[in-house]
Simulated assay, not measured.
Amino acid sequence: MKKAVLAVALTTTFVAPAFATNSLNPFADEKSGFYLGLGAGAADYNDSYSDYEKENDRYSGNSEYTKREGAVNLFAGYRVNKYFGLEINYTDFGSPDAEYNSPGGSVHEDVENEIKGYGIKAVGFYPINTNIELKATAGVMKWKVEEDYSITNSAFPSVNKANSHSEKGTSLTFGLGANYNLTENVAFGLQWERINDVGEKYDENKTDTLRFGENDIDLYTLSVQYKF
């Protein structure tokens, strides 16, 4: 998978500038060109903390698990023509945290996460009219989950501990959306994107494991972009 990501990145690096010159791009039209954008919205973590939650349910108590957080997406791309483009992006998926308190409150567990990633994707466009176009995306994303865990036990302070664990990986992504072209250079976008299998499966017998678990992330964003 890493070789595939590198190959696509190198292709984008050398091919996109060539396309910037109409004489080298047989598909060039009035839509061709570079664009930059910023998106904001929410990330749904679907099955986050599911196995960790099952473990805590055996001991009752009170638990809270973040299933949705704010997210920010920065992206840049090259529009080959009105039907096809290539795009790179960096996404902050927020901080899906968790907290557990035992009956009576003697045991407290706290989990804090940060999830970020960067990727590359192909974008297909389908113009409806001058202002509105639909789009579909497919690509890969390199992500990193960083997790801090701590446990405090007022009855048995000797078991108190804190540790950190991180996990990296590469996932396939796909999405659907639409753009509204406000002017020749400014457009607003609405998009849903799925990032598959982020994280790692939780193992309660290991200390260096992600309590966040492994699950798909759904990203919903409203964006604005500037076309050069």
Results as ranks from 00 to 15, higher is better:
T11E: 07
T11Y: 12
T11L: 15
T12N: 13
T12K: 07
T13V: 15
T13P: 03
T13D: 04
T13H: 04
T13N: 08
F14N: 03
P17C: 06
F19W: 14
A20L: 10
T21D: 15
T21H: 15
T21S: 13
T21A: 10
T21M: 08
N22W: 01
N22E: 14
S23H: 13
S23R: 15
L24Q: 11
N25H: 03
N25G: 01
N25K: 05
P26R: 10
F27W: 13
F27Q: 02
F27K: 04
A28S: 14
D29Y: 08
D29V: 10
K31P: 01
K31V: 00
S32R: 06
G33D: 08
F34G: 08
Y35C: 10
L36D: 11
L36P: 01
L36Y: 14
G37T: 11
G37Q: 09
G37M: 07
G37P: 08
L38W: 10
G39D: 04
A40K: 01
G41K: 00
G41V: 09
A42W: 00
A42D: 03
A42H: 02
A43S: 15
A43L: 13
D44N: 15
D44F: 12
D44G: 14
Y45A: 06
Y45S: 07
N46W: 13
D47G: 10
Y49P: 08
Y49V: 12
S50R: 13
S50K: 14
D51A: 15
D51Y: 11
D51S: 15
Y52Q: 03
E55W: 01
E55Q: 12
E55G: 06
N56V: 11
N56W: 07
D57A: 15
D57K: 09
R58Y: 05
Y59L: 14
S60Q: 06
S60C: 00
N62C: 04
N62E: 12
S63Q: 15
S63H: 11
S63E: 12
S63T: 14
E64Y: 04
Y65V: 06
Y65T: 05
K67P: 02
K67L: 11
K67F: 06
E69H: 05
G70M: 09
G70L: 11
G70P: 09
G70Y: 05
G70E: 04
A71P: 11
V72S: 02
V72H: 05
V72W: 12
N73L: 00
F75M: 09
A76V: 04
A76G: 15
G77Y: 02
Y78E: 07
R79F: 00
R79D: 09
V80A: 04
V80W: 02
K82V: 02
K82Q: 08
L86H: 03
E87K: 14
I88Q: 04
I88W: 05
N89E: 13
Y90N: 07
Y90P: 04
Y90G: 08
Y90H: 06
F93N: 06
F93M: 11
S95T: 06
P96W: 05
D97H: 03
D97I: 06
D97S: 14
A98R: 14
A98F: 10
A98N: 12
E99V: 05
Y100W: 10
N101F: 12
N101K: 12
N101H: 10
N101P: 00
N101V: 02
S102H: 03
S102R: 00
P103N: 12
P103I: 05
P103Y: 10
G104T: 07
G104H: 02
